[in-house]
Amino acid sequence: MAVEGKTIDALSQFELTHVAAGFTNSNLYMLIGGVAISALMVLGMQKRARVPGRLQSLAEVSYEFIYNMVDEQVGREGRKFFPFVFTLFMFVLFGNLLGMLPYAFTFTSHIAVTFTLALVVFILVTAVALAIHGTKFFSYFFPEGAPIALAPIIIPVEIISYLSRVVSLSVRLFANMVAGHVMLKVFATFVVLLGSLGVIGIIGAAAPLALNVALVGFEFLVAFLQAYVFAILTCIYLHDAVHLH
């Protein structure tokens, strides 16, 4: 990438820059996202109208979407985790969507960020499981009825699969966002490079431009879908923690 980096620079968009006190451009967009979420919820619900307006509808739809997700996936006991899942979903969704703005920084394209969020989910899920089931929680790693002789194989496999939740949760979001933004940047660079070659180049640039238009639409889908996946997997893990299968 070092040589190509001079012509097609797809990765500089992920570069962190320092603002102040360790606060980076990534954190700036987290702050913008947080303010936007708060504004949506607080300003949207300001009127508390019985017949909601557009902003209030958006706030209510977000609320009911996550509320129903938590209710269906975790059940009645899951309601106390609803604010957490809601915050998580909105934070990831706004991070993904803000990244679609030109010149914006996509903080969900940083593995450190997604891993931290996944770790928060993992710690919460494990703490909830331990709080509800105590030491019985460890029976989760050895399914009931399995032959004792297989324990040396089953238990490590179960533990690894449990720990790998953090990795799969974080890498899925990180990889999706990075891949999407790299593709957008690469095709956009094609457009610019071909466009500088004169008339034939401008005609040739139409193809990557058309592709990029389609990719932008696709990226909006991915932005929503990955936030949804992150939230619903959190719900499924919470279900496991509450019910232990």
Binding site: N27, G34, F107, A112
Partner: peptide, 12 residues
């Protein structure tokens, strides 16, 4: 990378 994570925790 580290300070980003710390600020993430604060903001989140």
């Amino acid at each position: 990378i580290l300070t980003q994570v710390l600020w993430l925790l604060v903001i989140f």
